[in-house]
């Protein structure tokens, strides 16, 4: 029982980060119908800035805003330089464009910074735990879960209660109609990328703390987890993205604790297998959005 509870909290902590990443992917997908394979670069780029900042005597208190702001700016910059040029192109084109951006960024760091692993110091409280009864809970997990809850609540408010949120949801459900109704496509798309970057920035803070290092290919895993979570939850659903992230995190942690020792390092493989089974029985994901075929 204690073990299960421990795992649940662990899984929620992991899943919260995935949920933030997935929500960022889903917001952009909703508005552009582009699955952003470059989403992980919103962690790689701030990651290298973090490395640079620590070498110049910054502390976590100043680094955290740096990560978030640089993630937002990177998101906007990538949109401006690459994605704005393929707006309305085929899905195939947009998928490959985002994949290409991912590759350029990681190859750029490889080329002009270094191929080697750059260490980043973890905050002092990172490894602390608090005991509740027989439970040993990591402070890091609690912080992640708490912050994520606040950010998600804020995002919900933004989407439900503000004019920006309304135009974003309208554009996500029918872009052409929304434009006819006076939603400015440029600003709402940029807004979506800024929001996506902000969410990635929050996730990035935790991701960088947890990894304690950055490499040119650091963006691959967060990208993959975010994209998979979106698919698990149901492509096109924001709620589904959050749910998918949490489910993915829980599945990873629980599987790792249940699998026999010999094959524990195949956890990722088993997670993928479960996702495959999910797709076979529920192709649209957990909260599938009905796809209307227009004739």
């Amino acid at each position: 029982m204690t073990g299960l509870l421990q795992n649940l909290i662990d899984g929620l902590g992991r899943g919260s980060i995935y949920a933030l990443l997935a929500l960022g992917v889903a917001v952009v997908f909703g508005i552009m119908h582009m699955l952003n394979f470059a989403h992980g670069e919103l962690i790689t780029i701030p990651g290298y800035l973090t490395y640079w900042a620590f070498n110049n005597g910054w502390t976590w208190w100043t680094v955290i805003p740096l990560i978030i702001i640089s993630a937002v700016l990177s998101s906007l910059l990538i949109e401006r330089v690459a994605f704005s040029r393929v707006r309305g192109a085929t899905d195939f084109t947009m998928l490959l464009t985002s994949f290409g951006v991912h590759f350029i960024v990681s190859a750029g760091f490889l080329l002009y910074v270094s191929a080697s692993v750059k260490p980043i110091p973890r905050p002092g409280w990172f490894a602390n735990t608090v005991s509740v009864g027989s439970l040993n809970i990591e402070v890091f997990d609690l912080v992640v879960i708490g912050v994520t809850a606040v950010v998600l609540a804020g995002t919900t408010w933004l989407l439900q209660r503000t004019m920006f949120g309304l135009s974003l949801r309208a554009a996500a459900s029918d872009f052409d109609t929304a434009r006819l109704m006076g939603v400015k496509s440029d600003s709402v798309i940029r807004g979506a990328f800024a929001l996506s970057g902000f969410l990635a920035g929050i996730a990035g803070v935790f991701w960088i703390m947890r990894e304690g290092q950055v490499t040119p290919t650091a963006g691959i895993n967060p990208m993959l987890q975010g994209v998979l979570a979106v698919l698990i939850g149901g492509l096109g659903s924001l709620r589904g993205a959050v749910l998918g992230g949490l489910v993915l995190g829980l599945a990873e942690v629980l599987l790792r604790s249940w699998l026999p020792l010999g094959i524990q390092n195949l956890t990722t493989g088993f997670v993928f297998l479960m996702i495959a089974l999910l797709f076979i029985f529920r192709p649209g994901g957990l909260l599938s959005v009905p796809q209307v075929e227009r004739v």
Partner: peptide, 22 residues
């Protein structure tokens, strides 16, 4: 013109073709 230049060429080629000649 540094080592590993050939890897970034791939990314640039992909994005450029997607934008101008998908």
């Amino acid at each position: 013109f540094r080592e590993n230049l050939n890897s970034i060429v791939l990314g640039v080629a992909m994005v450029a073709f997607m934008i101008w000649r998908p």
